[in-house]
Design a protein around this nucleic acid. Structure first.
Length: 447
RNA sequence: GGAGGGGUGGCCGAGUGGACGAAGGCGCUUGAUUCGAAAUCAAGUGUACCUUUACGGGUACCGUGGGUUCGAAUCCCACCCCCUCCGCCA
């Protein structure tokens, strides 16, 4: 089985040996469900050796126990010294010195074990929900409903690329000249169209009670690891080397990280956020794929939904449907034909429990293609990010997180342009977008 | 970019080598008082990991990481962040 990602372990740093933080699936859970976890990794197409992890866990705990015993004695000796008589003191100091030596070698060993352990732990995937079909690629996704019908053209429809050029609203040639492959520029009605979709999207979000957020697009490694994009997604992420910052591939990174290392008041849950941001993706390993048009680009704009809720599967599922519903609402307002599918295991990301994709009909591709992705992660991100709440027993619990695309452009412009095109190469503006387009109803080369 | 100041618990704030997981205050919880409340008094009040059937015990955490020491919130080094002034700037 081909591995989806090439893993770079080199730069993962771990938290201190003395205070291991919960950073992944609960190790106790992994211990008790080793087989299921290993199966999840195989089904999801991630390579991780659970047996090795458990071995390291065993070693780690043994060393932890031993070092803690030495530390306890060291503390005892150290506090006895000031009270000791002059006769006793040299002996105690000698013992302390000895303990220090012992501790330093053992600590080093523990450190190494801990580091391997945590690196491995970061790569353990979350378990997919039972209803997720097992499979390798999107061929194995399970379509659960269709909404709308692909348009029957009584003329030869043009691709969005042709339309974009004809209308002079998508300029790839000039953009590529200054920025390289997969670059594009939206001009005139093209730029307005993108902004219109984003504004419509944000209106839906605000009406639904989501808090709009514009957040940092350059973030540190902790935010990337905390949201589960590192270590696996590292190759797909732009790195600003001189500042040790990374460009986010989605506003999910800053929306989830908003509450990093916080204990939230459960009264304030669930929290709903809508982020609007540029998104940056290197698209590593996809050279030569989807090179036509603006389907797969390095930089795009997105309105994203994020929810943080209590650790309850039913509640999470309820919110999942709500997020999905918001996106479908947008699609229906845009009047675009789409279908909804459950992503199979091979298409389900490291932390994802279940993912629904909205796939929109794209005439030029002659198929439904992904425009939205709605994911439940349970406590996967919250563990890594330290987002907790206090339950009714006063115990801290990790929150559950979810996210879904509300609208991503320019990809969403593809079905809009292609679906609403006219025989003369003009494009009708969907009614829902007209008010954000200064009343423009049709895009022509002159408009 | 240059010069200086600073990061301690939910908050404020003390602490410059041992009695400090950390004074004091505020806040919060519980109890006493009260018909009830306020005020007052008393007790409690961080996070995580390891261990234990349990009661409990242990370890770590004073921005982060290293170092010195029998012993570090306290001393040393590096980094991160915040504030003030200067420079530059949408």
């Amino acid at each position: 089985m081909l591995l989806r990602f090439i893993v770079n372990l080199g730069q993962i740093t771990t938290s201190s040996v003395a205070t291991p933080r919960a950073i992944m699936l609960d190790i106790k859970f992994i211990r008790e469900n080793a087989e299921a976890v290993q199966k999840a990794a195989v089904d999801k197409n991630f390579e991780v050796d659970i047996d090795r992890l458990l071995e390291l866990d065993e070693e780690r705990r043994t060393l932890l126990h031993e070092t803690e015993k030495i530390r306890a004695r060291r503390n005892e000796v150290a506090s006895a010294i000031p009270k000791a008589s002059n006769d006793e003191r040299p002996e105690l100091i000698a013992e302390g010195r000895e303990l220090k030596e012992k501790l330093s070698t053992m600590d080093e060993e523990l450190h190494e074990v801990q580091e391997s352990y945590e690196s491995l732990l970061l790569m353990v995937p979350n378990l997919p929900a039972p209803e997720v079909p097992i499979g390798d690629d999107d061929e194995d996704n399970e379509v659960i409903r269709h909404v709308g019908e692909p348009r029957e053209f009584d003329f030869e429809p043009r691709s969005h690329e042709e339309l974009g050029e004809h209308l002079d609203i998508i300029d790839k040639e000039r953009a590529i000249r200054m920025a390289g492959s997969r670059a594009y520029a939206l001009k005139g009605a093209g730029a307005l169209l993108e902004m219109a979709v984003m504004r419509l999207g944000m209106d839906i979000m605000v009406e639904a009670g989501f808090t709009p957020v514009i957040g940092p697009l350059m973030v540190n490694r902790e935010a990337m690891t905390g949201t589960g994009f590192f270590p696996y997604g590292k190759d797909d992420t732009y790195h600003l080397e001189s500042d040790q910052k990374y460009l986010v591939g989605t506003s999910e990174v800053f929306l989830v990280s908003l509450h990093r290392e916080e204990i939230l008041d459960p009264e304030t849950l669930p929290r709903f956020y809508a982020g609007k941001s540029s998104c940056f993706r290197r698209e590593a390993g996809s050279a030569g794929r989807d090179v036509r048009g603006v389907y797969r680009v390095h930089q795009f704009t997105k309105v994203e939904q994020v929810a943080i809720c209590v650790a309850d599967k039913d509640k999470s599922r309820e919110i999942h449907e709500k997020l999905l519903g918001n996106s479908e609402k947008l699609m229906q307002l845009l009047g675009l034909p789409y279908r909804v599918a459950i992503a199979c295991t091979g298409e389900t990301g490291l932390g994802q429990v279940i993912k629904h994709e909205i796939e929109t009909w794209m005439p030029s591709r002659e198929k439904y293609s992904e425009t939205h992705s709605c994911s439940s992660l349970y406590d996967y991100q919250a563990r890594r990010s330290g987002i907790r709440y206090r339950d009714e027993n006063g115990e801290t619990q990790f929150c559950y997180t979810l996210n879904n695309t509300l609208a991503a452009s320019p990809r969403i412009l593809i079905p809009i342009l292609e679906h609403y095109q006219n025989e003369d190469g003009s494009v009708n503006v969907p009614e829902a977008l007209q008010k954000y387009m200064y009343g423009m109803t049709v895009i022509t080369p002159e408009s």
